[in-house]
């Protein structure tokens, strides 16, 4: 059956990426999160979740009225569901931040009545994990625009699998499913590009992340007088 093949392919791709990330980051230590960092991740996840639920309802409508094409159209706006991951990674700058923020996003969506129910839990985790892998390719040291885009683009890769089953588009064939995945990845990259850096830097400039690495980095760039509270 097609679905099983798709699952298999996705798993293989995921395993390869995780493997590469692991090899590249040998010796990196997982730093403990401060409470502020945990709360930042939780808030990002929850805000993403709350704003994402209407988005999901919209997607449900799209698919209701346009059938399988709706799945493609919906793919274009799915980038928003992944945003907490790249954003949390960018702000907190520690391994695991994206995973945690997206998992919390998933939980928040379930509790706020996402139409896709408990499935979103797993989806959130997988999205966040892949976003983290995206950053890990750059060793959690490069915080330019490229890692952000990669992080956003990778997010949908694994999460696609359960979705394919849930929406019953597995039997639409390879071409269709690859197209859907590519659209989602572009969407993820686009949302990350437009939202992550402006929002992250904007928040840091507003002085709400006192004592985090992002704020220190942003303050170094901007003129000293902008730093006065």
């Amino acid at each position: 059956m097609n679905i099983i093949l798709i699952y298999g392919a996705v798993l293989v791709v995921g395993a390869i990426l995780v493997g590469i990330a692991k090899v590249m980051n040998r010796g990196i230590k997982f730093a403990k999160f401060s409470l502020m960092e945990i709360v930042i991740m939780a808030i990002l996840g929850v805000v993403n979740g709350v704003l994402g639920t209407p988005n999901a309802m919209f997607g449900r409508f799209l698919m209701t009225f346009t059938g399988s094409y709706g799945f493609l159209a919906f793919a274009a706006i799915t980038g928003f569901f992944y945003i907490a991951g790249p954003l949390a990674g960018y702000i907190v700058r520690k391994p695991g931040a994206a995973t945690m923020a997206e998992t919390i996003n998933g939980v928040a969506q379930v509790l706020s009545g996402n139409p896709n129910g408990a499935m979103v839990l797993g989806a959130g985790f997988l999205q966040g994990l892949m976003s983290d892998i995206g950053y890990s390719f750059f060793g959690y040291r490069n915080w330019g625009i490229v890692p952000i885009i990669v992080s956003g683009a990778l997010a949908p890769l694994l999460q696609e699998a359960p979705e394919v089953y849930f929406f019953g588009v597995g039997n639409m064939g390879w071409g269709y499913n690859i197209l859907a995945t590519v659209i989602r990845m572009i969407s993820g990259a686009l949302y990350a590009l437009v939202l992550v850096k402006p929002i992250g830097d904007g928040l840091a400039k507003a002085g709400v992340f006192k004592g985090t690495e992002l704020e220190a980095a942003v303050m170094k760039q901007s003129k000293p007088k902008a730093g006065v509270m």
Binding site: I43, L51, I77, G202, V208
Partner: peptide
């Protein structure tokens, strides 16, 4: 449109997050 929607989102999210994160600082 997608571009417009992205701008709407950014303009909603930034003030919302600024406020939430300011509060989060106090909370922590």
């Amino acid at each position: 449109g997608i571009r417009g929607q992205l701008q709407n989102l950014r303009q909603l999210m930034l003030p919302l997050l600024v406020r939430s994160m300011r509060e989060a600082g106090t909370l922590v």
